[in-house]
Nucleic acid binder design. Structure first.
Length: 200
DNA sequence: CTGCATACTGCAGACGAGTG
DNA sequence: CACTCGTCTGCAGTATGCAG
């Protein structure tokens, strides 16, 4: 009994893609609520989420906050911690280096709101951080800034979902996924949310 | 039931092969 | 030799599947 009506964006996606239409109708309306508040913390969480399940990432993230005894992670917290000390908080060597590098960027550039940067500057700054690649940047743009037209073919879950619903054959080159996603423009983000939900 | 091995949604870096 | 490009490896916790 789906009582909640689909948004106009979701209806639009259904019109341009029949396969996606079925997924959206089954899912029902998805509320897209990016967390715009603490950008630094969002990035830390994304770094932790690389390669591991969201559940595992959540546990590590909560342990990290508990160890640091804070509700809101700030770059300054990590300034005086060595990579080794961050690692002891439950992270791998590379992720510790990554968080350290991210903190340095925020402190050096004195960032308050990354949203004010142009897309180019945003990408350039984030990609300069050790351990942050295109996937991480996309996740930040979706879940923190709330951009509506983001799709990342580097996300394995999205690819699996697209395989399962017959959009793209498994093992295809990444560019086929990107090409397919073009039809969802300018709401690729909303399409991604439905693909994620469809496979849990 | 318990315990263990394994795979799993990204990334950097090491390394080898290919090129000039 | 000096580069570029592709391949391989290791890593945080958890769910799953299989052996005992």
């Amino acid at each position: 009994m789906e009582k909640v009506k689909l948004s106009s964006k979701e209806k639009y996606l259904g019109e341009v893609d029949n396969k996606l239409k079925k997924i959206i109708e089954k899912n029902g309306h998805i509320v897209f609520k990016p967390n715009r508040k603490n950008q630094f913390e969002s990035l830390v969480k994304i770094i932790i989420s690389q390669f591991i399940s969201t559940k595992a990432a959540n546990t590590i993230f909560l342990n990290l906050k508990k160890s640091l005894n804070t509700d809101s992670l700030q770059p300054l917290v990590f300034r005086n911690l060595s990579t080794y000390e961050i690692k002891k908080l439950g992270l791998s060597v590379n992720k510790s280096r990554s968080i350290k590098s991210l903190s340095d960027l925020f402190i050096d550039q004195n960032f308050t709101d990354l949203k004010q940067l142009s897309e180019d500057d945003l990408h350039k700054n984030l990609l300069s951080v050790f351990g942050v690649g295109n996937w991480s940047v996309s996740m930040f743009e979706i879940f923190c800034i709330g951009k509506l037209n983001i799709f990342s073919s580097k996300d394995a879950a999205l690819r699996i979902s697209m395989n399962r619903f017959g959009m793209i054959k498994p093992e295809s080159d990444l560019k086929f996924y990107d090409d397919y996603a073009e039809r969802w423009s300018p709401y690729k983000t909303i399409a991604s949310l439905h693909l994620w939900k469809a496979i849990d």
